[in-house]
Simulated scan of single mutants.
Amino acid sequence: MQDIKETAQEVFYAVLPITAVVLVLQFTLIWLPLADFLQFMVGLVMVSTGLTLFLWGVQVAMLPIGEMIGSSLPRLGKSWLVVFFGLLLGFAATVAEPDVRVLAMQVDQVSGGDISQNILIYTVAAGVAFFVGLAMLRIILSIPITYLLVTGYALVFLLAAFTPAHFVPVSFDAGGVTTGPMTVPFILALGVGVASVLGGKTASADGFGLVALASIGPILAVMLLGIFYN
C-alpha cells in the first residue's frame, strides 16, 4: 500500500506545475467559460488517478516481467529467439503506447483521413520493433552502440532529403512519442534482463541505449511511408 501512496504523491507533484499555470492564466488573462474550466478540473482528476494506477502497474508488473523475460530468453541458448521476441515485444508495446495513438489521431485528423490512424500506428510499431530486434542483436554480438546510432541518424538525414516535407516533422514526432510510459519501461527492462545474462562485464552499459535506438526506427519508418505516399 505504501508504494501506491508514494506513486500518488509523485503524480501530484508532477501535475502541480501545469495545474498552477492554468489556474494563473484562468484567473488573470484568459478567463475560460466556467463549463470548460470545470471540464479541465474533472479531466485533471481523471488524469491524476489514471497516471497513479498506471505507474503503480508499471512498478508491480511491467518492469519485473520485462526483466524476467529478458533474462529467461538467453538461457534457452538460441539467439534468434532473443531477437524474434525483441521484435515481437517492441511491436506490441508500441501499439499499446498511448502517446503513439494521440499522434496518429492528430495526423489522421489534420490529413483528413489520408493518413489513417491505424496505418501510422502500425508503421511506427514496425520501426520500433525492427530497432529493438537490432538492439537485442547488438547485445548478443557486443556491437558498440555508437556505430548503430551514427549509422541510424546518418540514414535519417539522408532519407529526409527524399521524403515529402510534411512527413519529416511527423517522423521526428513519431520518434519522440515512442519514448512514452508504456514502451520505455518494458523495453528498458527487457534490455537490462538480456544484458544481465549476455552482457558479461558490460552488462550495465549494454542494458541501456535501447530507447535511443528504438526511437530511430519510427523516424525511418514514417519517412519511408511518406516516400510511398508521395
Rank of each mutant, 00 (worst) to 15 (best):
I139W: 05
M105F: 13
A8P: 11
Q106D: 15
M223W: 06
A195P: 11
V168G: 07
E97K: 00
Q106V: 10
I65A: 14
A154C: 06
L73P: 12
T49R: 11
M41T: 14
V15R: 02
L89T: 04
L224V: 12
A125R: 02
L210C: 03
Y153G: 00
L213V: 09
A96K: 11
Q106Y: 10
T183W: 01
L51K: 12
T178G: 02
A189S: 14
V197K: 06
V11H: 05
G175N: 07
T146W: 07
G175K: 03
L155I: 02
I69V: 13
G200Y: 03
F208R: 11
S72P: 06
S116C: 02
I219G: 05
Q9N: 15
F84E: 14
A126L: 10
F186W: 09
L159P: 08
L29Y: 15
E67C: 02
D114G: 07
G207N: 07
E97I: 00
P185E: 13
F84M: 13
K78G: 06
V168F: 15
A135M: 12
S196E: 10
L159C: 06
V156S: 02
G200W: 04
Y122F: 14
A35R: 13
T7N: 11
L23V: 01
V83Q: 06
L73R: 01
V47Y: 13
W56L: 14
Q106N: 10
I145Y: 11
V124I: 15
N230K: 12
L51R: 09
I69Q: 12
P181V: 13
M46N: 08
M1D: 15
L44S: 11
G133R: 04
A129T: 08
S72L: 05
V107W: 05
V21W: 07
I145K: 04
P64I: 00
V100C: 08
A135C: 06
V211E: 15
I119H: 13
F131K: 06
R101T: 04
L38A: 14
G66F: 01
K78Q: 15
L29F: 15
